[in-house]
Design a protein around this nucleic acid. Sequence first.
DNA 1: TTAATTTATTTGTAGTACATATTAATTCGA
DNA 2: TCGAATTAATATGTACTACAAATAAATTAA
Lengths: 237, 237
Amino acid sequence: MQKDLTLAEQIERKILKYISEKGYQLGDSLPKENELAETLGVSRVVLREALSRLRILGFIETKRKRGTVLTSPNIFYGFKTILSSGTLDKDSLKDLYEVRLMLEIGMADFLFLHKEERHLNELQRIIEEENMTVDSEQLTKLDIRFHSTLYKMSGNKSLYAFQNLLNTLFATYAPRRKDWKVKQIISHESLLEILKCGTADAFRTAMRLHLNTRFENMGTLFPEKAVKEITEDEEEA
Amino acid sequence: MQKDLTLAEQIERKILKYISEKGYQLGDSLPKENELAETLGVSRVVLREALSRLRILGFIETKRKRGTVLTSPNIFYGFKTILSSGTLDKDSLKDLYEVRLMLEIGMADFLFLHKEERHLNELQRIIEEENMTVDSEQLTKLDIRFHSTLYKMSGNKSLYAFQNLLNTLFATYAPRRKDWKVKQIISHESLLEILKCGTADAFRTAMRLHLNTRFENMGTLFPEKAVKEITEDEEEA
DNA sequence: TTAATTTATTTGTAGTACATATTAATTCGA
DNA sequence: TCGAATTAATATGTACTACAAATAAATTAA
């Protein structure tokens, strides 16, 4: 079953198995390193390497003397390290950019499902601020805030966390054209209006038009993407 | 700037910095562990722990004698470990389930942008197989294949990888109702028809209806989600 | 020239020792 | 007796050393 995994990788999985078998709950403390190493039959070095791997994924936190405690694995914990490393290739960047567009269009139903007065008010405030400024940089910030509020409004915490990461990413990687605001077909006002008394279906269409410049600029932002064939992923147990 | 990061974590970032500063490319080999440890001024243990963290994120691969080589950081590398660990909490699961629905609805434009004859043929074949069987399990498999093909069709490799992960996840966590096939408003045939000679907008609406049972069943699949307030994330540099 | 064998090198693993931080216990003073 | 300060105990963090295992490179044999 196990191919050529390094011992630390095997132990990493053993620990996860050990945790679920022993019925450890969030917040519980694992045995101390020496004990756990002995229990699993490896040296402390290997155990610590395995623990380190679990730590970067957000499974555990360790503190001196206090030991290793189980934490809620934030899905995007490791993600963050990758994004902020600046080593992401062009293709992956474009992929993420596309994913964001898909999400903003696809989230419509959840916006209508979870919308609350305070969200609508927040959006209204942002729009008012937009109408009061002509500064391009300021407008960009407000635009980000508007869309960020939508993500929050979706009621999906993971999605919101994801969006926050992408924001910082694309702020540096995909700067906007200067005329982005002018060329917009559907304004933030229109979107808000639909949110107030429209349907999810109407919102999707409107959002698609609102993001039209993004769709059009993609070719220049991410030129000549190598259109490699997607091959079937071999599933792993 | 650095809070209370462990040395290995600091070194992890130092290595990333080192890589980008030295202009290392994908496939290049890093200096051997002893050298790198000395260069960065830490023991080999710490260096190896840092390398291990980078390895789980898919930044590097190491082989005996050959050394450490830079690889393309697969965004969902660590993700996979988390998902397959079975320790994901209910909220995160629901979040991911929702995200998948959003993506399938939001991907319409990219389907039309990248659709090719072979994709349409593949979909056609699946539909024909569906029409030839009544076995519930078989139908579920074909359904997964149909949607999986759509992801492939989107031309977004990262998205396709993501979807593969979610498939294995929800196969165990969110089993289907027995009558899912009967209650479907829009069939795969209809979706394919729209893909052939319809518009992205029409496809979105159709897909939303096609997924209607999924939307409706969400309440039973993920009961009484703790509707915790989404708090502002403090951005980190 | 090619195949087989040996050598050298680099990662993988183990053990030990000590530094450091933090909790727990103990002492001292009011 | 209570509370603050000090001390002790303990678990993680880091370093160093040694050796095992794998494999690329060099050497030898056919």
